[in-house]
Design a protein around this nucleic acid. Structure first.
Length: 646
RNA sequence: GCCUCCUUAGCUCAGUGGUAGAGCAGCUCACUCGUAAUGAGCAGGUCGUGGGUUCAACUCCCAUGGGAGGCUCCA
């Protein structure tokens, strides 16, 4: 007998060799039917695997990520089995479970193409195969056996993977006629996979390397119940409606023009207004926090970027240099503001007493992004950073860093980004040539970031090898409508530019010292921030920020005049108000302005005109009753006060 | 840049080897209206661009621009 300890501390005895599934059955068959994976002594396992020793056991139901992972991983294998039966000889790369569903990278073979039209076919075959309730069987094999198996099959991608694995750790999973190299864990059989949707196709380079072959990546998702899949598809559809490109067009915020060029956003009046309001707000916040504003040109001499090291690192991937009629003059479109700011620092001498200097600019920069990379406002070739550089003494570094974390948290709170992630990006210790600067400075900078994040109680993930070439960084990421993560805020420590630009300050010892530089952006870029804000709010911006706060809706043309007097009153009271005096019925006006997401719709008819009132309707909420214009002004001001005073 | 798909009116989309339609938006007129679409009429497209096949191409083929989803990259 072996003793199994459950998460709640209870202990039960079982026959040696009992499976996690059987344990679940012994508790309740209903539980067993919903368990897809188990953590045994801290190790995630198939529920079909036998338990041989006294163990702690956690059973994972659907709501646990571990369960979904096993479910979707098995689904990936099921899809692979379907693909192999449809395209004999197809070769397989990797097929993992992902956050929502799974994919498999495949090579259908020379001259064969999988297209969108094949997706329903794959789906149907998967359903057939799933219905056979094939057992999913785990076997441990030697490296030699594994290599022989996949060499015989001609699966060169798998053999490449196997050749990098350690002997004795290799496992295979087989269901039906399909065998895959896999660590697991998996479902005991395919019967639980009831609802299947093959979502999309994409190209993906083998092992993410663009010099290697491009495989076909097939994305899918599965659920134990059809209803869950239906709900998921509805959720996806809802998310698509929040796409900032769609809302940006509907609300007339921004546009792109083929003639102007791809990736070059055009801010329409309402969007420009919104963007400017964000800039004004941020400027007020920065001034309170001891920043000074600076302004620099959109181009800079190529020497500037040679000094900074950017030219060497990125010159080939940038917009081409600009040359002048005068020979020998070469300029670059500004891809970042830091070198300019370094030269502003150098324009005047500095004492240790002045530091930290916090220099901010809403600087528009230009970066050549590959055409396939461009995406709405989140990935563009021209964008405005809310950029700033802190020049500080080494002893001030950590406090400066912490103050910026504070600022990020403050701004994200006002923007309503409650769910953001913070990532500390360090250099790859295996690959020092990717970075510039001394080991000593890197270690100091990395230590400062980790400590500062720790002292601010920030939950962080650490990404090795993701640092900028000049220093480590802390990035803040927010999700868009369909769950993609976008980096907004970033804080980066840099000992290298101060050295390259020979930045100095006079210390209390009457000696020159080198300041430390912190690069930081809070919004990241105005473009990306607005995009993420649109998707997080569905275009229902907070009232302090929204382009139009209220719209007057006269019930008929008879009341246009009264509506206009109120319009003037509101606008003079700094409430951004429009009038919809079209010759339309009130129902139509309400519908149109609701769709424009204007927060307050003010209906004006005979009653209001007689009593000197307005009838207030809140967007998305309905009629709020009649009030005096002064009351409404107070209402809006209070609301703005609550939004900004966080 | 690469893979798959898409590209028809301002927007959303039909459509056929015989040079095009709908809804919404726009404009005009009538109605003067009470909380999510009043009615009628008008106007709007060399079917992304350039080649080719054909008696004839929006439709088939090639190239190219642009877009979508990914891959890669993101100072």
């Amino acid at each position: 007998m072996i003793r199994i300890t459950f998460p709640d501390g209870t202990v039960r005895e079982y026959q040696k060799g009992v499976s996690s599934y059987e344990v679940a059955m012994s508790i309740s068959p209903r539980l067993a039917a919903e368990v897809y994976a188990a953590t045994v002594n801290g190790e995630l396992r198939d529920i079909a695997r036998p338990l041989d020793t006294d163990s702690t056991l956690r059973l994972h139901k659907w709501d646990d990520p571990e369960a979904k992972h096993a479910f979707w991983h098995s689904s990936a294998h099921l899809m692979a089995e379907a693909l192999e039966s449809l395209w004999p000889g197809i070769k397989f790369g990797i097929g993992p479970a992902i956050e929502n569903g799974f994919y498999y990278d495949v090579d259908p073979g020379e001259g064969k193409v999988i297209t969108d039209a094949d997706l329903p076919v794959i789906e149907a075959r998967m359903k057939d195969l799933a219905a056979r309730n094939s057992q999913i069987v785990r076997t441990e094999v030697s490296k030699k056996e594994a290599l022989e198996l996949f060499t015989a099959k001609g699966d060169e991608y798998k053999t490449e993977l196997i050749s990098e694995l350690e002997d004795g750790t290799i496992t295979l999973y087989r269901q039906g006629n399909f065998t895959d190299l896999c660590r697991g864990p998996h479902l005991p059989d395919t019967s639980a996979i009831k609802a299947i949707k093959i979502l999309s196709l994409a190209g993906a380079y083998w092992r993410g390397d663009e010099k290697r072959r491009m495989l076909t990546r097939i994305y899918g998702i599965t659920f134990p119940k059809q209803k869950m899949l239906d709900e998921y598809m509805v959720m996806l559809e809802e998310a698509r409606k929040r796409d900032h490109r769609r809302i940006g067009r509907e609300l007339e915020l921004f546009s792109f023009s083929h003639k102007v060029g791809m990736g070059l956003p055009l801010w329409l009046p309402k969007g420009a207004d919104l963007k400017q309001r964000l800039i004004d707000f941020m400027t007020r916040v920065l001034k309170k926090r001891g920043y000074t504003m600076v302004s620099t040109p959109h181009i800079g001499s190529v020497d500037l970027y040679k000094t900074s090291g950017h030219y060497e690192k990125y010159g080939a991937d940038s917009f081409r240099p600009i040359t002048t009629p005068q020979e020998g003059e070469v300029f670059m479109l500004k891809p970042m503001n830091c070198p300019h700011h370094c030269e502003i620092y150098n324009a005047t001498p500095h004492s240790y007493k002045e530091l930290p200097i916090r220099m901010a600019e809403f600087g528009t920069v230009y970066r050549y992004e590959q055409s396939g990379e461009l995406h709405g406002l989140t990935r563009v070739r021209s964008f405005t950073q809310d950029d700033a550089h802190h020049f500080c003494r080494p002893d001030q570094l950590k406090d400066e860093f912490k103050s910026i974390i504070d600022l990020v948290q403050y701004i994200f709170k006002i923007a309503g980004f409650s769910e953001f992630t913070a990532q500390i990006s360090l250099r790859d210790p295996q690959n020092h040539e990717k970075y510039i600067g001394s080991d000593e400075n890197w270690e100091k900078a990395e230590k400062a970031i980790i400590e500062a994040a720790g002292e601010k109680n920030l939950t962080t993930t650490i990404a090795i090898g993701e640092a900028a070439f000049y220093g480590p960084k802390l990035d803040f990421m927010v999700r868009d409508a369909i769950g993609r993560k976008w980096q907004l805020g970033t804080i980066q420590v840099d000992y290298n530019l101060p050295e390259r630009f020979e930045l100095t300050y006079m210390g209390n010892d009457n000696q020159k010292h080198q300041p430390v530089m912190i690069h930081r952006a809070i919004f990241g870029s105005m473009e990306r921030f607005v995009a993420v804000l649109i998707e997080n709010t569905s275009g229902k911006f907070p009232i302090w920020l929204t382009p139009d706060q209220a719209v007057m809706l006269p019930i008929s043309e008879k009341f246009n005049e009264y509506a206009k007097t109120i319009l003037n009153l509101l606008n003079n009271s700094d409430i951004r108000t429009l009038i919809d005096d079209r010759n339309e019925k009130i129902g139509k006006k309400i519908r149109d302005n609701e769709l424009k997401r204007i927060p307050y719709l003010l209906v004006i008819g005979e009653k209001e005109a007689e009593s000197g009132t307005i009838s207030v309707r809140r967007q998305g909420e309905g009629d709020k009753g009649v009030m005096k214009p002064e009351e409404f002004i107070r209402l809006v001001r209070d609301e703005i006060g609550r939004e900004i005073d966080v």
